[in-house]
Deep mutational scan, measured.
Amino acid sequence: AVCQVIGMYDYTAQNDDELAFNKGQIINVLNKEDPDWWKGEVNGQVGLFPSNYVKLTT
């Protein structure tokens, strides 16, 4: 993983390639090539999510 982030809001996947997560959930970021849509993993599920829905862990 590149880094870990925390969901600031609940996110519901809109497409099959997206990653759903809940507020407060830890997401392992796998790829930040696109500044707006990062690739991440939660509980074995991998997908894209909007980078503005998360904050970096300290």
Rank of each mutant, 00 (worst) to 15 (best):
F49L: 06
W38H: 03
D17C: 09
Y9L: 15
G7C: 15
T57M: 13
P50A: 07
T57R: 12
G40H: 02
V2L: 08
Q45D: 14
T12V: 11
W38G: 02
T57E: 07
V5H: 05
D10V: 05
V42Y: 14
Q45K: 14
N52Q: 12
W37R: 07
C3S: 07
Y11V: 03
F21E: 03
E41C: 03
D34S: 11
E41M: 05
T58I: 06
T58S: 12
S51M: 06
D34T: 08
D17Q: 13
Q45G: 05
W38S: 03
L56R: 09
K39V: 08
Y11K: 01
S51G: 01
I27P: 05
N28D: 10
E33I: 08
G44N: 11
A20M: 06
K32H: 08
C3A: 07
G44L: 01
K32Y: 09
I26M: 07
D34N: 09
N31F: 00
M8D: 05
N31T: 11
N15Q: 11
I6K: 10
L19M: 04
D36Y: 14
Q14P: 02
V29T: 03
W37D: 05
V46G: 04
D16C: 11
L48H: 09
Y11Q: 04
G7V: 06
C3E: 12
K55E: 12
W38P: 01
V5T: 06
G47W: 02
V54D: 00
G44E: 01
Q45H: 08
N52C: 10
P50G: 03
P35L: 12
L30W: 07
V29L: 09
Y9M: 15
I27F: 02
Q14H: 07
D10W: 07
D17A: 09
Q14R: 14
N28W: 10
C3Q: 05
I26A: 10
E41A: 06
V2P: 11
G7P: 07
N43P: 04
N28Y: 13
G7R: 02
V54Y: 03
E18W: 01
Y53V: 09
L19H: 01
V5E: 02
Y9K: 15
L48D: 03
V5A: 13
Y11R: 08
T57C: 12
Q14E: 12
M8V: 15
N15F: 06
A13E: 02
N28G: 04
I27T: 01
A20V: 06
K55T: 11
T12H: 12
I6Q: 11
F49E: 02
I26L: 15
P50H: 00
Q14Y: 00
M8P: 01
V29C: 11
Y53T: 12
N15V: 05
K32D: 09
V29H: 00
G44K: 00
D34F: 06
W37F: 09
V42I: 13
G24D: 06
Q4R: 09
T12I: 05
Y11H: 14
D17L: 12
G24L: 05
A20G: 15
I6P: 00
L30V: 13
A13N: 02
D17P: 06
L19P: 02
I27M: 04
S51Q: 07
D34M: 03
C3V: 08
G47P: 01
I27W: 01
E18D: 10
E18A: 05
N31E: 15
E18G: 09
V2M: 11
V42L: 14
I26Q: 09
V54N: 03
T57I: 12
D36H: 13
N52D: 13
N52V: 08
L19E: 07
G7N: 00
K55A: 12
W37N: 06
V5N: 01
A13G: 09
D36F: 11
K23F: 05
N43V: 03
I26E: 10
N52M: 12
V46R: 08
G24A: 01
K32V: 10
G40Y: 04
G44D: 08
V46K: 09
L48K: 13
A20H: 10
D36W: 09
L30H: 04
A20L: 03
I27V: 09
E33V: 09
Y9F: 15
Q14S: 10
V2E: 13
M8C: 13
L56Q: 12
M8T: 14
V29S: 02
G24W: 06
Y11F: 10
V2S: 10
N43E: 11
Y53R: 13
A1W: 15
N43G: 10
D16Y: 06
Q45T: 11
N15L: 05
G7Q: 01
W37E: 04
C3D: 13
I26D: 02
N15C: 06
F49A: 03
N15G: 14
V42S: 13
D16V: 12
D16N: 09
M8K: 15
F21L: 04
I6R: 08
F49C: 01
G40F: 00
E41D: 00
L48T: 11
L19N: 04
N15H: 08
K23P: 01
Q4A: 02
W37T: 10
I6N: 03
V42F: 08
L48N: 11
L48E: 03
A13K: 09
I27K: 02
G7T: 15
V5W: 06
K23E: 13
Q45P: 03
A1F: 10
S51K: 12
A1E: 13
D36A: 14
D34R: 12
K23Q: 13
S51I: 03
D34A: 08
I26S: 06
L30P: 00
L30N: 07
N43R: 08
Y53P: 04
I26K: 13
A13C: 03
V29I: 05
N15P: 00
E18K: 08
E33L: 07
A13M: 02
F21M: 05
A13V: 02
A1G: 11
D34G: 08
Y53I: 10
D10Y: 02
K55G: 09
V29F: 07
P50E: 02
L30G: 00
E41L: 03
A20D: 10
V5L: 01
